[in-house]
């Protein structure tokens, strides 16, 4: 596809802010509108903007194929581990293991934050991965 100056410039300036807004939605999902899935999809749309405007080859040096697939798999396994941690603490699967213990330094809501960040990483990496596979040139 033909690349224009406007597309190039706007995508370069806009994509970092989209990624930042996605991270904000991830990390404040337990207090304000947002959450894991929404933040992940916003991150993925920032990456997709780069794919569409800059080309998959250029963007793949920033978000390599292998790293995205590793992040997706690792986030799923860590999410499973976080769920099983609740089971081990006697709160049931995906329960809050910190509900029983009194940890002064760590607020109890931090478990929701952990779930949100893990889900966001998984969703963001997964959707970026799918679209990278879709937009690849020269099949």
């Amino acid at each position: 596809m033909k690349k224009t100056t406007i597309l190039d410039l706007v995508s370069r300036k806009l994509a970092p802010f989209m990624l930042l807004f996605g991270l904000y939605l991830l990390s404040y999902g337990h207090m304000s509108p947002g959450g894991g899935f929404q933040g992940g999809v916003v991150i993925a749309s920032g990456v997709i903007l780069l794919f569409v405007a800059q080309g998959v080859g250029t963007t793949a040096s920033l978000f390599p194929f292998r790293t995205l697939s590793l992040v997706e798999a690792a986030a799923f396994l860590l999410l499973l581990a976080a769920g099983l941690a609740g089971l081990a603490a006697g709160a049931g699967f995906l329960g809050n293991p910190m509900a029983g213990v009194d940890v002064r330094a760590v607020p109890r809501v931090s478990m929701i934050l952990v779930y949100n960040v893990l889900i966001g990483l998984k969703v963001g990496a997964g959707i970026s991965f799918v679209c990278m596979y879709l937009f690849r040139e020269g099949r």
Binding site: P33, V41, V42, S45, C131
Partner: peptide, 22 residues
Amino acid sequence: APDVALTEAAVGTGVGTVVLIW
């Protein structure tokens, strides 16, 4: 329902449209 609105804006208007245009 700002949560659902965010999801709809990101998935329906963003990613879905891009994939369908492709």
